[in-house]
Write a protein that binds this DNA or RNA. Structure first.
Lengths: 333, 333
DNA sequence: TTGAAAGCGCTACCAG
DNA sequence: CTGGTAGCGCTTTCAA
């Protein structure tokens, strides 16, 4: 069931069928009708591979993310997809699960597909792969990746600023025993959040005590990290989480430990995903503009020339999960 | 940068390069080495489209879902992907957003890709499309779709049973004023949940009062539906939600209305997504085995012959969001 | 063990 | 306005 079959049935050439199928060039109305009818009768579906092979442009944009379950990535996908559809592109989304070998395989697969553009929004990028990407003619944009490369568009977020705001918020509320809940992933700018936390907190040392713990990106990772912190006897009055997704798990575990948020422990996240405002209490966090990111990705991929590097600033979003520390004097009195 | 380039550089024919790239046939070790080296030096990436065109099988499975944001669908994807990867398949996931025209476009796109199999896990399927799907040689499995078709594998869940369990649970707890929060989507078996709710509740009529409301699948849809119910002056003591995702939003709105769960209002969901046990209080729900579904999809798509229709039964999962009704006498005394 | 060449289904260009 | 046809890059016989 191919172009030739349709052509034969309609009594025209394959060239004409191609014109009709693509709404390209001029075709007499009657001929067009005959062709469309033949195509329908034969239940003809154009072969995408042949089309891409012959034509060149696949009008597809690839998106590689670390963790589809984390709504943060999904939000970027949605925004990118919306922009893409408006311009008659499709977007192909894939997921590495933070596994480096998957990332390599997916990059290979994506490039093999001859896409119109590729967006890599992952935390596990390594320098070698970055070099390799930079060597391609295919337009590529990377999010949240350390060192810049010519030929690549970089979109980054100023995590330091966001983190700083969050931690000073807690310090101002009187918190002196803090904990940080991070990713297992130790690569790339995700570490920025942790390192910024450590930097600030150490400035106040030894007035401020702190601990860190890690878990997989997800609810259960957040829970485990919190369990680890309290399991070792440390009793923070505030916990800073690397993102909202893990913070939701952390909050759940605090409840399991019979600790109230924010009365006993304050909690912060990062990203400002929709869930942050659904859980109870709603999460104090730092907003990253995913909508904007998705749109910027699309623009960078399709229009040229583009800026080499884009830096976005997160916004502080105070909600109910943080509160001033209850002075021991108040409690014991 | 293609096969011919590599062949030239390695001083062999394209046929040999092809053999090396696919680990197929016999090639002298020395030749193989020369070819792989040439491919690396040239940063050669095989063109997927050409390969699919020439070879036939793309070793790709397509998955079309209604709403990627709903973790229910994502869980199926993960499970399907795991099974697929084990057998060296990739899975292509796409999202309709409950829009029927997107579904049609995506089916077209998927079939045009000459996939090895297609899974359609949507609620907005219509009979015409179902007929069309049934006419393809491509293996297809559909989830949660009403009338069966020969040539298609159907995977269904006994929603009636799940719903019945949930509602009788509430009735046994003494609830007599119930509300149902459903989808905008009125198509297909999602209605099963609502209709089953209505059936049961009407059996008790007029002892039991009820109302229904709808919203989009998501947190905000759940919130709006709850707002609508109370906005009209109806004061249910229990709310049954079509799924957990919306139930999480519903719970959030109840809190905004200063109603406690479960003390003032009991709440149930459906699906048993991970989030159901993260929100506070954790959600009483009905478990649908997504892991099993993903695996069944893969098996149905790749092995043959398969059963025509598979029916799964959900499991009742009682948690903290439901409780016995507080008798007015108790409250006022 | 390797090479030559015939497609796979479609687009795009050049004629008519 | 329509047809003929040369590729696109790869796999796969069939010979050598």
């Amino acid at each position: 069931m191919n172009l030739a079959d349709v052509a034969r049935r309609a009594g025209v050439s394959t060239a004409t069928v191609s014109r009709v199928m693509n709404n390209i060039g001029v075709v007499r109305e009657e001929t067009r009708l005959r062709v469309t009818r033949a195509a329908e009768e034969l239940r003809y579906y154009p072969n995408f591979h042949a089309r891409a092979l012959a034509g060149g442009d696949s009008r597809m944009i690839g998106l590689i993310v670390s963790n589809l379950e984390n709504p943060f990535f999904l939000d970027i996908f949605r925004s990118l997809e919306a922009a893409a559809h408006d311009a008659d592109y499709e977007v192909l989304i894939t997921n590495t699960g933070y596994r480096s070998e998957r990332l390599h395989a997916l990059v290979r697969l994506m490039i093999g597909r001859r896409l119109s553009g590729l967006a890599v929004v992952v935390s596990e990028m390594d320098e070698a792969l970055l070099d390799e990407l930079a060597h391609h003619e295919l337009p590529i944009v990377v999010y949240d990746v350390g060192s810049t490369r010519r030929g690549l568009v970089h979109i980054n977020v100023d995590y330091r600023a966001g983190m700083q705001r969050l931690v000073s918020h807690l310090v101002e509320l009187g918190h002196r025993r803090l904990a940080f809940v991070g990713h297992h992933t130790t690569l790339g700018p995700l570490q920025d959040r942790k390192e910024t936390f450590l930097e600030i907190v150490r400035q106040f040392s030894p007035a401020i005590e702190y601990r860190t713990a890690t878990g997989a990106d997800g609810f259960s990772g957040g829970r485990e990290a919190v369990r680890a912190i309290f399991g070792e006897g440390f009793q923070p009055t505030a916990i800073v989480c690397v993102n909202d997704f893990m913070a939701a798990g952390a909050m759940r575990e605090l409840r399991a430990l019979n600790l109230r948020v924010p009365e006993d422990v304050s909690l912060t996240g990062f990203d400002d995903i929709e869930l942050a405002d659904i859980i109870s209490p709603p999460l104090t966090t730092s907003h990253i503009p995913r909508d904007l990111i998705g749109r910027l990705i699309f623009e960078s991929l399709t229009s040229t020339p583009q800026p080499r590097e884009i830096l976005l600033t997160p916004t502080f979003v105070p909600r109910g999960s943080t509160a001033a520390i209850l002075q021991p004097s108040c409690v014991s009195s």
